[in-house]
């Protein structure tokens, strides 16, 4: 009985060790970017960060509002982003004002 228990314990330990050797794991650092405060920033944070970190916005070149509107529309049409229609303007206005050419 004792020997059998020992055998079971050894098997579990060996299995555990093998399992650890087979597992390759990393932990990603969390996104650190924070958007500038301004009208609409909560809407941008809420919807845009569903699919990607907000540095996807801040690292883009400065584009006019019309370009950002088209980009937000693409997020909805092509990628199915659940952004309500009334928020499209809020989002593109905010990005154009704070990270684009303003108009």
């Amino acid at each position: 009985m004792r020997i059998r228990l020992l055998f079971i314990l050894m098997t579990i330990c060996a299995g555990g060790a093998a399992g650890a050797a087979d597992l390759h794991r990393i932990t990603l650092p969390p996104p650190t970017v924070s958007l500038k405060e301004g009208a609409g920033v909560y809407v941008v944070r809420r919807y845009c960060s569903i699919c990607h970190s907000l540095d996807y916005i801040t690292t883009q070149p400065k584009f006019p509002k019309a370009k950002w509107q088209a980009e937000v529309a693409k997020m909805i049409k092509v990628y199915g982003a659940p952004i309500p229609e009334e928020s499209v303007k809020v989002i593109s206005d905010y990005i154009a004002a704070y990270y684009g050419t303003g108009s």
Partner: peptide, 11 residues
Amino acid sequence: LANIPTSVDLA
């Protein structure tokens, strides 16, 4: 895409 693999178990 945001859901990238962060662990792979060869077993």
